[in-house]
């Protein structure tokens, strides 16, 4: 209770008094960027690094990122690992099941262009960007957890900069 009573006093110190002016857009996108719930979608090696990033040392939760097992509750799909031709339609379907606005991070070389399986492989899809649209590419085989965190921060920046009209037009 004490703190709430003091809020007007603190607010008076801000230039412009108790009135803080901002746009709805900023508030919405700040909120959206700070609570990206990601889908647990790991297929190969990168999934282990995704797990490590979610676990003790790297701790995804401090970015407001919590894993969701179902696509219907997720904002973000981190495609961690090789996507084969057999898996590609399933990835597309998972993406379609997610609600707008939705974002995609392509984690690791395999999702970017096939990675080490580009040559001589008859079964690997050469890049996921012709299945689903990708927002952030993170290179590496597999990328370190720090790279993944950096990728997520970049995605947050991207979300903060977007306009409400942008995704209305989609």
């Amino acid at each position: 209770m004490g703190l709430i009573k003091k809020v007007p006093i603190y607010a008076e110190n801000i230039p412009g008094g108790a009135l803080v002016l901002t746009t709805l857009e900023t508030v919405l996108h700040q909120a959206q960027a700070k609570s990206l719930w990601y889908l647990l979608f790991g297929t190969a090696c990168c999934a282990i690094e995704l797990m490590c990033t979610g676990a003790s040392r790297y701790d995804f939760d401090r970015l407001g990122m919590i894993f969701r097992p179902t696509p219907r509750q997720a904002d973000l799909i981190i495609a961690a690992g090789t996507i084969t031709k057999k898996m590609a339609p399933r990835l597309r379907r998972l993406y379609d099941q997610m609600a707008e606005p939705r974002y995609v991070i392509a984690m690791g070389g395999c999702t970017i262009k096939g990675g080490p399986f580009y040559y001589d492989s008859y079964a690997v899809e050469k890049g996921i960007d012709h299945i689903i649209p990708v927002d952030i590419y993170i290179p590496g085989c597999p990328p370190r957890p720090e790279s993944l965190l950096e990728g997520c921060l970049q995605l947050q920046n991207k979300i903060k900069k977007q306009r409400l009209l942008d995704w209305q037009e989609k």
């Binding site: 190969a44 090789t82 084969t84 001589d120 492989s121 690997v124």
Partner: peptide, 8 residues
């Protein structure tokens, strides 16, 4: 679903 043709 993860057949990547490693042997090939």
């Amino acid at each position: 679903y993860l057949h990547r043709a490693i042997e090939k």
